[in-house]
Design a protein around this nucleic acid. Sequence first.
DNA 1: ACAACTTGGAAACATTTTGGTTACAAAGAA
DNA 2: TTCTTTGTAACCAAAATGTTTCCAAGTTGT
Lengths: 227, 227
Amino acid sequence: MENKNIEIVIIEDEEDVLELLEYHLQKEGYDVMGFLSTENVEQFLEEENPSLMIVDRNLPGTEGSEFISQMRETGYEMPVIFLTARDKESDLEEGFTRGGDDYMTKPFNPKELLLRVAALLKRSGIHTSDKVKYRDMVLDLQQHTLTVDGKPVDLTNLEFRLLHTFIKNPHQPLDRDFLRDEVWGDDSVNFHDKTINVAMNRLKKKIDPSGEKEYIVPVWGIGYKLN
Amino acid sequence: MENKNIEIVIIEDEEDVLELLEYHLQKEGYDVMGFLSTENVEQFLEEENPSLMIVDRNLPGTEGSEFISQMRETGYEMPVIFLTARDKESDLEEGFTRGGDDYMTKPFNPKELLLRVAALLKRSGIHTSDKVKYRDMVLDLQQHTLTVDGKPVDLTNLEFRLLHTFIKNPHQPLDRDFLRDEVWGDDSVNFHDKTINVAMNRLKKKIDPSGEKEYIVPVWGIGYKLN
DNA sequence: ACAACTTGGAAACATTTTGGTTACAAAGAA
DNA sequence: TTCTTTGTAACCAAAATGTTTCCAAGTTGT
C-alpha cells in the first residue's frame, strides 16, 4: 500500500461520521487516529507527528478552529481540513484565518475528501518521521525520543543506541562482543566486564520498571535478547 | 499593501467572470494577469513566474485540466485552483489527478476564493509577509527584529540567525554540527566547543530571561531543541 | 543433592563527559 | 576612538557512564 506510514488525525464528535471518515481513509492506506473531542489530542501530538488533520468545527467544549489556532501558536504546522455542517461565510473565514488549509461542508463527498487530502499532502511535502515500533515501544529516531505505552520515557544517548540495536535485531540473542562493537564502537579499549551489564540493567529498568513486560531478557552465557 | 508582488494568472473564457476575479484579487493587492484562453499563456510562463494560477476547466480549445497536466509535465509547480460550472464527480477527480490543488464551482463566493488563494499561497511556501511566528515570538525577517509577547527584543545578527534556524526546525533536536554549518558556515575553522554553548545561552537569556517559557532546551549529548 | 564455579543483578561510588556561567579578549562597526 | 558583538578560557554544576563490590541465580561435575 502506497500511503503506508502517513498518519492522519481526525477530531469529530459524531461517531458515525468519524467511522465513515476512518473507513474511507484507511481503505486508502492511511494510518488513521480518531478522536471524539479535542481532549487527549494535545498529548497525542507530543508523541506522534501526524501528516494531516481533519477537524470538525462544531465540537463539544473547545471550538474546532479555536483548537487549531492554539495548536498553530504552539508551532504545529501540518495541514488542516475543517469540516462543518454550517455554511455561513463568517465561519468560513474564521476557519481559514485560524490556520485551516481547506474547508468541507457536511455531508461531504468521500471521493472529494480523499482527493483534497491527497492534494494537500502533496503540496505540503509529507514529513514521515523516522519511527521504529516494537510492541508497546515507539522509537522516534529523529526526535531521539521513546514512548512506552504512549508515555514518554527519557533515555540517555547510550541507552537509546542500545535499545535501537535491540529493536533492529529482535528475537535474537545479541552477545556482548556484538553489542560492544555496535553501541560502544571498536575503539573502546579497557572495556570492563560489567559495563554492558550495568548499562543493560539501567535500560531495562527505564523501559519496564516493574519487570513484568520482559522486553529484554538475559541469555545466560551469551548476552541479551529482545522479546 | 501586503500582497504586493505576488502574481496570479487567471485563465477564464467568460469575460465577465474574468473581470470579477481580477477585481477581487487586485483589491487584495495581488498582481493579476488574465487570459481568455490557454493561448499565449505558455509564452507568458516562460517570462514570468506567477505564484498561483486560477484556471477554468471548460475552455475553448484545450481543456483547462489538460493544459495544467501538460504544464506540470513541463515542470511548473505553482498551485492551481480549478473553476468549473459543472459538478460531476469524474470531473472533480480528473482535476485533482491532473495536478490541481483546489476546486471551486461557479458561481463562487469571492470571499471564499480569496481565502483559498491565501491558504494555498501560505502552504506552498510563498510568504505574503516576511514574518515567521512561533508561540509568542514573531520574527520579522525583513526588519531583522523580534518581538516576544508583543514586546520588542534586541537580537544580534548571530542570535537572529540562530533563532531563525530553530524556528525553521521546531520540535527537533538540532545537533551542534548542524547548527555550526547552518549558522556559522562550513568555513569556520578552529571552532571552539563552547562557542555554540555561549551563543545559545545568550540567545536563551534574551528571549526568555526568566527561563519559564522554555523555548529552547538542551538535549543532552546532541544539542538544543525548540519547543 | 551438593559444592564449586560461572554469570548476571543491584547498589554505591568514581570518573568522565557535557552544559552553564562568568570574565575577559579579540574583532568589527559606528 | 568607543561601543557592540563575538569568541575564548577557566571554572562550576549536572548528567551520563564506568567501576567496584557484594549478592543472587544458573550451571556443572561429582
